[in-house]
Amino acid sequence: MIEAVIVMGVLGIVFGVGLAYASGKLEVHVDERVERITELLPGGNCGACGFPACRELAEAVVKDHYLINNCRACNEDSWLGICNILGIELGRRKQEIALVACSCDSVDKFEYEGVRTCAAAALVMGGFKACKHACLGFGDCVHACPFSALERRGYQYFVDLRKCIGCGACVDACPRGLIKIVDKSAEVFVRCNSPDKGKVVAKICEKGCIGCKLCEKACEREAIKVENNIAVIDYGLCNGCGACMEACKFGTIVPVFHAEDAVDSTPKVTRTEKKSG
């Protein structure tokens, strides 16, 4: 009994002292705020902030507080929480969503065979759509979305506005640059991205913007302008009245649905589904 106590005691003292000495000698400073911030960050590792993972952003944020604005994915609560941890106050953050600016209505110019991804298809003779700016419909953006906010049905895309946080991962994935990040308050958007002349567009696409400027005339607040043959909405001025939408003869301008139960950001297009898969 005595021996046991002595042995344990001696061992305990030896190791305790050794460890205490070593821990002092080999101390590595770790900021526990990093851990707490990482927990509050969304954890999608979407990369939209410019850092490969949420943890890296957290580490950077501790050093430079304002980098927290880089995260587009976190919700209001966790954003405030992080501000609390850092002991700073920032104004209301911007919230954004992604919208696919193409009605996918362009006719095909040839039959494509090959790897079924947009990026690969875009490399073959400039893509199989007659419109050089048209969506190729293989869903690279869907696969790129870290929050499963995009859904593809046939050749059309649906953005789930509850899930989408405007991180921009899909923007990067689209070889055609069709996806626009806009303010979450957006009510209407122009579903075309083609800067081609109206004559060219009209020939190959029923729903493309031909730059007729009817919308521009209809808008009372001068929020919509035709620049470079394509209508562009300034969401800072737009109040979502929908006048431009009614003015557009081609159905290029469509509403953004904000209702909780409506997943679609785009209304049904009459064109039948062609190929999928």
Binding site: G114, V115, T117, A119, A120, L123
Partner: peptide, 13 residues
């Protein structure tokens, strides 16, 4: 397998 196209895609990216 369309190997060349995939490699070309990788190179472009």
């Amino acid at each position: 397998i369309p190997i060349v196209q995939l490699i070309r895609y990788g190179k472009e990216e």
